[in-house]
Amino acid sequence: MRLTSKPVLCNYYVTYRCNAKCSFCDIWEKPSPYITLEDVAQNLRDLKKLGVQVIDFTGGEPLLHRQIDQMLAMAHEMGFITTLTTNAMLYPKLAQKLKGKIDMLHFSLDSADKETHDKGRGVACYDFVMESVRVAKELGERPDILFTVFKHNLHQLEEVYQKIILPNKLVLILNPAFEYNAVETGERLSEEELDYLTAFGKRKQVYLNEGFIELRRDGGNHTSKPVCKAASTTLVISPDNELVLPCYHLGTQAFPINGDLYTLYLSEEVEALKKLEGKLPACEGCTINCYMQPSFAVEVNKYFWKALPSTLRYNYYKGTWKRMFA
């Protein structure tokens, strides 16, 4: 049963440029412009009309955009829930400008060991994460630590939790790694390792969408009976001001927005692509978290029920539920 036909999320790529070179990501390899503030303003108005509730300003590294604080402020003032994930290299410098404008602020950290984390990110950024936690807390912000889970760093979870999460009163978000295109993330987690993640996700100050684990146990999305609702739940906007469908990672087609995102999203061409969500050959076995999370939220099925407890708990802790009903 579908709960809403409206899209709920916009993944807004402000640039594909990045100051890190993560081994499990290929976005930083792309040439890229920066989105313009004028296009953002117009698109936010159309996103509001379409019913979108959450704007995830992403990249690349979103803090590379010199007007990111203005974009966040605009979205926040319009009543959107704003989210941003950063490698934290630029956060200490920009923290004062960003204060109060990000509802869900995530700092990426994959190990409690500086050398290990920096090696995976291709740049020395561990110290920036630690500094960013300190600065954010001094400003009264409530950042989270986003831990991308691989087989090779699963054993690091306990140390991150004990040494960083609990002393700083942060939330640890467990983000199981996923493969896409030619990007490989190593051997997939075993049943025993998925069990370990599930148990870890029940600890205080830890968020794990249990729907992600269930989907991995089931072998991912299946084109014969797709769970993915990427195109109908999530709008993807590129730095070139294009609507990308059915999702960023497939990017089958990109449509120039030309100042009218509302009409474009409801057009026959886009509607035709929405009907193919989760059914394309490349969709078989997909487990991409950023599209599965909204997919689980709009349709009542076993993934909905698996995802619901942790989602409610996280939104209650962060207070974002208040903005949804403001």
Results as ranks from 00 to 15, higher is better:
N181H: 08
G285N: 15
T233E: 07
G285R: 12
M292Q: 14
A230M: 15
E193C: 07
L174S: 03
T263V: 09
F212H: 15
C228L: 11
P294Y: 00
Q293C: 06
T252L: 08
L243P: 05
E179I: 15
L172G: 00
E214W: 04
D218K: 11
E268V: 11
T234Y: 01
A254Q: 13
R216N: 14
A282E: 12
N241Q: 11
V171Q: 00
V244P: 02
R188G: 11
E269A: 14
K202Q: 08
M292F: 06
A272P: 02
D195M: 09
Y196H: 10
K202F: 06
F296E: 01
L261N: 01
L215T: 11
T185R: 11
G186Y: 10
A199K: 10
C283T: 04
L245H: 04
L250Q: 06
A199H: 13
P226K: 05
G285S: 12
G251T: 02
L266Y: 04
F200L: 13
I173N: 06
Q205F: 00
P294Q: 03
F178E: 13
E268A: 10
T185Y: 08
E210C: 05
C247D: 01
L280M: 09
G211N: 06
P239Y: 07
I165Y: 00
F255A: 09
C286H: 02
N168H: 13
F200W: 09
T234G: 01
A182W: 09
L273E: 06
V171P: 00
T263L: 12
F212K: 06
G278V: 08
T198D: 15
E214F: 03
D195C: 08
L243N: 08
N181E: 12
C286V: 08
L172H: 00
L250E: 05
K204R: 14
P176I: 05
E277A: 13
Y207M: 03
L170S: 00
I237C: 07
Y262S: 06
L174K: 02
L250G: 02
K169F: 01
K274R: 08
E271H: 06
Y291F: 10
K204A: 04
A272L: 14
R216Q: 07
G219L: 13
Y207C: 01
D195E: 12
E187Q: 11
T185A: 11
V227Y: 13
S238Q: 02
H249D: 07
Y265F: 14
G201T: 01
R217W: 13
F178G: 01
P167Y: 04
R203E: 02
A182G: 03
D195S: 10
L243R: 07
P246V: 08
V227S: 10
G285P: 11
T233Y: 04
E210D: 12
T185K: 09
P167T: 04
K279S: 09
S238W: 03
G285E: 13
K229L: 15
V244S: 07
Y262Q: 09
V270L: 12
V236N: 08
